[in-house]
Design a protein around this nucleic acid. Sequence first.
DNA 1: GTTATCAATATGTCTATACATAATGACGTC
DNA 2: GACGTCATTATGTATAGACATATTGATAAC
Lengths: 229, 229
Amino acid sequence: MILQGWQAIRDEVKRRIRVRDWTPGSIIPTETELAAEFGCARGTVNRALIDLARAGVLERRRKAGTRVALLPVRQARFAIPVIRADIEARGQVATHQVLALDRVPAPVPVAARMGRAAEGHLVYVETLYLADGRPFAHEARWLNPAVLPNPAPDFADISVNEWLVANIALAEGDIAFAAEGADARVAQVLGVAVGAPIFVTERLTRGADAAITFVRLSHAPGYRMQTAL
Amino acid sequence: MILQGWQAIRDEVKRRIRVRDWTPGSIIPTETELAAEFGCARGTVNRALIDLARAGVLERRRKAGTRVALLPVRQARFAIPVIRADIEARGQVATHQVLALDRVPAPVPVAARMGRAAEGHLVYVETLYLADGRPFAHEARWLNPAVLPNPAPDFADISVNEWLVANIALAEGDIAFAAEGADARVAQVLGVAVGAPIFVTERLTRGADAAITFVRLSHAPGYRMQTAL
DNA sequence: GTTATCAATATGTCTATACATAATGACGTC
DNA sequence: GACGTCATTATGTATAGACATATTGATAAC
């Protein structure tokens, strides 16, 4: 069987797993053997198998060989867009209002996550994002003041989110999702009852030596996060 | 500057982006130039840049060259484990109870998602997963009976989830997350108040020609889905 | 000015070869 | 049997060279 292109090899391997030609846990032929079968160089097989290993379909170990993953850790990739892009992708008009802009001491749960950065005061920005004029999401953000230029940018013009994306390149962080009941503030701003189920996104962004920002995003009811496996 | 290994090259490129040596939107040197600078073969640079392109950090086009992504689409990868593994990863004991096992006509919202597979009756399995004996998640699952062997496996022994993972290799599907209020059934089973905020996961798994299964997972309060950026 | 054509170019991929590296499994010793 | 030693082996990575392919930008024709 002659195959052309590493993607063709990858697809053929996937096919053989799907039709249970190679079953979970079993070992598959070596790269050299597959290269001979497919009539290509080992490097080409290698590229295909590495791709499948990254996707969690195969498990590879030197000398031990390549086996079909026993419990294929299904992975989902989510794009985490700027809220504005998220709204506009729905064909709606995105606007936002800055509800508060202060210097405050870090609340305890925020301090716990931001660590050293939260020792002094933080810049607190509260923003309401609107889609077609209706509340879309409420954002509470705490910023490490050390990352802001002097004077600070005017967050009434550009959203904090967009300023950060444009000015902080390639930061690492954590992200978490949960369902929570709306507290009084969120309920008021989003126009829902206190305790209504709210989809909450929390994101911590870390810089080289300290936390840059912590965001808590409360989505209006009906929000779904969706992706393909 | 001599670099050894494609990962070192990848990290150096990331560093230069981070310190704004190369800014978002700008074009970076060609593979050949970088290979000369780093004292390695073009193939090595290629591997590093392809990796960054997949991560969304770079955008590459033939002839046009490689540029730093203007709006680095932040992507998060979530591992979607078998519930048992999820519970055991927390150091708790995982058990489950099958609450219902029936053949039923597909409810309208389920039929809408499963399409052709939902024309006849579906196998409905309702399961409660427990962590250390306490309710962890409620699972409502509709199965395309065509995928089950005859006789059907005993889902009191292995969970449906695990049977599928072991017997349906490499299926594709969609997944969605939302916050919803607990309905009467979920509230009763999880031991929470009706309307309490519940983290809901919905997953549709598709086979070669028809939907295999649709699952609706309602997590007990306090559940968080977490990952690193 | 507009459009068609074409050479130049950067990335995409493949090849063959080589050596590095991590496990394994066999062997020998105690 | 337990343990350490070591050759073997499959994957990991690098190399130089080659050709494919998509785009660009310049040139020519209209």
